[in-house]
């Protein structure tokens, strides 16, 4: 019978190594323009892939989530701050959920 603590330790070690190895080993600026471009696009691709379609299932109600999604798009395009966009989309979901 394995203890829960040993599982937590295994998980923590594996996950931390994945995170720490590139950050500690890569110490020079990458010169290759292709790799630089790739790394420049990585966060946009990652965040977009994580946001959609997951955002539609982020609350208990898909209609409410869709309204929150639209709210976030409009405010983000208007360059509102991270906090404003996040809080407003939550508030919209909360209100819509009261009616659906």
């Amino acid at each position: 019978m394995h203890s829960v603590y040993s599982y937590i330790l295994v998980m923590a070690v594996v996950t931390y190594l994945i995170r720490a190895i590139p950050l500690t080993l890569i110490r020079t600026e990458i010169k290759n323009n292709y790799i630089k471009s790739f790394l420049y696009y990585v966060p946009y691709a990652t965040l977009a892939a994580m946001t959609f379609p997951a955002i539609l299932h982020a609350s208990d109600n898909m209609i409410a989530s869709t309204c929150g999604f639209i709210t976030a798009i409009i405010l983000a395009i208007k360059n509102k701050s991270l906090l404003t966009v996040a809080v407003c989309s939550c508030v919209v979901v909360f209100i819509v959920e009261l009616f659906v």
Binding site: A76, V85, S89
Partner: peptide
């Protein structure tokens, strides 16, 4: 919704 709203922002 907070996290996804933030991503879009």
């Amino acid at each position: 919704l907070a996290i996804y709203g933030m991503f879009l922002a």
